[in-house]
Design a protein around this nucleic acid. Sequence first.
RNA 1: GCGCUCGUGGCUCAAUGGAUAGAGCACUUGGCUUCGGACCAAGGGAUUGCAGGUUCGAAUCCUGCCGAGCGCACCA
Length: 576
Amino acid sequence: MKDILLEAINKVISEMGLEAPSVLIDYPGDMSHGDLYTNVAMMLAKKAGKNPLDLAGEIAENLKKLSIKDVTKIEAVKPGFINFSIDESYFDTAIKTVLHEKIHYGKNQSMKGKKVVVEYTDPNPLKLFHVGHLMSNTIGESVARLIEWTGSDVRRFCFQGDVGRHIALTIYGLRLMETKFPDENSSSKEKVAFFGQAYAKGSTYFKDHPEIEAEVQEINKKVYERSDNEVNEVYDKGREWSLEYFEEIYKILGTKFDRYFFESQSAGPGIKAVEEGLSKGIFEKSDGAIIFNGEKYGLHTDVLITKVGLPTYAGKELGLAEMKYNAFPYDTGITVTANEQNDFFKLTIKANNLLFPFLEGKLHHLSHGMMRLPEGKMGSRTGNVIAGRDFIDETVASVLEKMSERKMSEEDKKVVSEEVAVAAIKFSVLKQTLGKDIIYDKNKALSFEGDSGPYVQYSFVRAGSVLRKGEENGFAVDENFVSKVERDIVISESGNSESALKRLIERFPTVVERAQSEYAPHYVAQYLLALSGAFNSFYANSQIANSLSRLALTKAFQFTVHNGLWLLGIKAPKEM
RNA sequence: GCGCUCGUGGCUCAAUGGAUAGAGCACUUGGCUUCGGACCAAGGGAUUGCAGGUUCGAAUCCUGCCGAGCGCACCA
């Protein structure tokens, strides 16, 4: 409908001899202003030498002459808006579309055939998987799903820092610890916690004893070269345990990576790329190290290969871009990280473009804020970090507490409580604009009410419950349901909670498009809150289970919520 | 110091240069003989950090100031 009106407006204004700017046509915030509005008259008034309201009136008159299907009212108002009212039957048709498209409702083909890689989460083996990784995973997964809905071929990549200074510090810290090395039978949580402590120990010790620098560098070199059996043994065990532990978390979160990359693999290609860049004059030598002088491009200067000959994070990033491209020749390569890496990515993207001209315009960095504690930044070096797994487990525990009254098997409770907890966590991340920090207050439990994931899930569950009731009343939602709805069109009156819900369901695909084009899942999250609110209001105001049209609307609501939650990486449970 | 990002009710967040700045939490009040109360309805609560500017129109764009966060050469 938006497109139809847009076309009509453009036609009318060009017939009036006016140049069309990029016309805004949208849903008004307040339904009392009609179903759609445009501000085109105000934008053109000055150029046309007319008063905005008069011009709006003229455009409105000309639009009326076109007698556009389903448009029942065109009205020029106050400063110069033109408001449109759409016939109720148009929305009834939209509801039927939902019932046909089911779990595909909202998809489009805007990027059909494009290849896209999304790299996210990126935890480091031997280091703690903290709430920040949870955030990156949540956002990356949602973005990957949004892109899948453009018809693109998406690959999920995860890059893990299995070599480097943090590993050396962990191994050093291990030597300082009295605690016994955990055995194979310990839980993966214990195993990983052990290495987390070692890292904290190693890095705090290093902070107070800078004289161990040479020793740490020596260990680091051994890790790269795999030249020391003792180091290798610790390293291999730690890496294996970490990766197992990460898999457990991905399973709970609902992410499945297509491919893992490790820094130990990108080091070689990184060095090769940097040396090639050096010979081409893209990079230069300085103080024994190889650097990228970003100042020519208004960026910083960063070291790519240290004077000891080891690639830095930046150097390895240069190798990674090519490795990713070789694994899957993408049109768009997105990397999701916290915004503390913004400058770093500006730098490496620039360097990658210079080095690999075929990557020009393909690399994108998507940054998000950080999980912060009320008392300040979390840092794994100091040890005041919240483990991602602990955060999930604590949330699950409080969901279970809330579910204690529910009659449900223990097994089901376990599954559902996990789904609800993950919803609460993910939604709290995805409901707000990317890039802003989230303050995590341990004393304030995550919300299950109001603007929350569980609120949306609850609405879905409730809808399911009503549908079952409808079935008892002889309105089975089966193969014949849609055709029954088709025959029995019941047009509801406009202006009530039922028509408000209908209108929201109809605009879902446009919400998805916007979220896709801006890589902004929060539009979907915010929409789901509004949609759920509209449903709950409708539910409170009408008897649903005895009306086919209202059941049809409820079913359409269910599909829409289900699809929206899916885009956020959140499950829609049957019961909770 | 330089660069990037951000300041919206007590708190946490929305708002494509557009209409009366929206929600949730907290607070006050009302609603289960109806389909799940993790709900609904209503109320109070905002000089959108401050000062200018651009515009028919600014939370949004520009400039300055104040405040916060992040980054800035051999860590990742």
